[in-house]
Structures are given as structure tokens and as C-alpha cells.
Design a protein around this nucleic acid. Structure first.
Lengths: 100, 100
DNA sequence: AATAAATACTTTGTACTACAAAGTAAATAA
DNA sequence: TTATTTACTTTGTAGTACAAAGTATTTATT
């Protein structure tokens, strides 16, 4: 693939990951159940997408007890935020700069 | 999937189709070889994505001779343009409207 | 003590997708 | 006649998305 796509990030081609990252751009921490409800996903599907974002270090995880219940929360990393911004920028460029 | 994603269009989750549609938003007609060069794709890959966009009626095809050579050109349909605009609008909303 | 419910997963299986590479057909050029 | 171009189609492989079911741990209910 070419220059044309150099900042279009494969990680953000999927709508679940796009949703997760969007949420984490404006919320410092967001928990598993929060994503699940807001995005309307099954546990497995959500978990697999979160795992992918974690693996490439675009998000980090925190586990804690709130009262007596477990809670797993996620935060975008610096690199994740940067990659997401670049992706959005690339989309804008793509849409605006292709007049022959 | 939820409301949250209602205008995120599966057709535009792929970067090739995103590129093709972006180009067709600002160029009335664009030909096969033009896409191939600009996007840096193999024939088969390009053809398959164009076929997908044609199947869902987001683009239309025109075949002609220019001099002695064949030329196949593509144009976005009204529905294609609308869907693409809605997709972009949805992305914007997604990115801006998720503060808890 | 036994059963049920919640949380945050993992595992499994299926259907679909992206892509390169090779093959095809029809026309033109050397 | 052989090579080249155009615009594909076919084939095969590796990867992806997703639901559903299963798991471990803890807490709540009977």
C-alpha cells in the first residue's frame, strides 16, 4: 500500500475499536461494563477487541475493587492517542486532498 | 450493535473502499488505472473492492474506448455519497459526543 | 449449605474478509 | 506471431468478527 494510506491505522478500521478509542479520547478511564452497555456488545467480542488494543499498547488496564465488586477499567496510552489523532487527520486529508 | 454505531457503515470500514469513495467525492469520474496507481493496489484487490461498492450501489461503472484503448470509469451514486457523508458525520459524532 | 447471579474474561466454531498471485479474454502494437 | 495492455475472475491462504458457551472468583439469596 502507498503513502496515500500511511497514517490510516488498521487498528481503527473496526468500529468497536473505533468506538472504544473515541470514548477513551474524552474519558480518562472507562470500565468494561461501561463499554459493554454504551456499545451494546457481547462480553467476548468486547474482550477480544480490548485485548487487541492492549496488545499494541494503545490502551492500558487497571483492576480494582469498588466496594465488594471487581471493576476493570481502561485508559488510552499516549501512543494510542497519538495514533488515533493521526488516523483522524489522515482521514481528513484523504477526503479533502484527492482532486485530480 | 447499538444506536451508537447506526451510521457507521460497514462498507467504509475498509481503507481501500474508504480511499475509493473519498476520491469519488471530489472527482466525478475516476478510472480503474487511476485508482490502481493512486492507491497502489493489485488489480484483483482493487477489482474486488470496486465490485463490492458496485453491488451495494454506492458506485456505478462506465466502459468506453479512448482512442483504441478500453477504459473503465467509476462514479459515486447519490446513495453512495449520502452514505459516505453520514458515515463521516457519525465518526465526528462518535469522537465528540462520548463524555460521561 | 446450596443455589443463583455478577464480573471479566477465555475458548470454540463459523462465516466472512483481505489480499496476492495466477489465470483469462479481447484488443492492439511490434 | 509474439508480446503487451486492460480489466478483470479465480483460487488459495491467512486473518477477522462475532455469538455462544464455558470458566473462575466472589457475593447474595434461600
Amino acid at each position: 500500500m502507498k503513502d496515500f494510506f500511511s497514517h490510516i491505522n488498521k487498528a481503527f478500521e473496526n468500529k468497536v475499536r473505533l468506538g472504544v478509542m473515541s470514548i477513551l479520547m474524552v474519558n480518562d478511564w472507562y470500565d468494561f461494563n461501561g463499554f459493554k452497555e454504551l456499545l451494546g456488545l457481547t462480553d467476548g467480542n468486547l474482550a477480544s477487541h480490548l485485548a487487541k488494543l492492549e496488545k499494541i499498547e494503545f490502551i492500558t488496564v487497571k483492576k480494582e475493587f469498588v466496594g465488594k465488586k471487581t471493576k476493570t477499567s481502561y485508559q488510552a496510552t499516549k501512543e494510542g492517542k497519538l495514533a488515533f489523532k493521526n488516523h483522524l487527520q489522515a482521514l481528513e486529508t484523504l477526503i479533502k486532498g484527492t482532486k485530480k
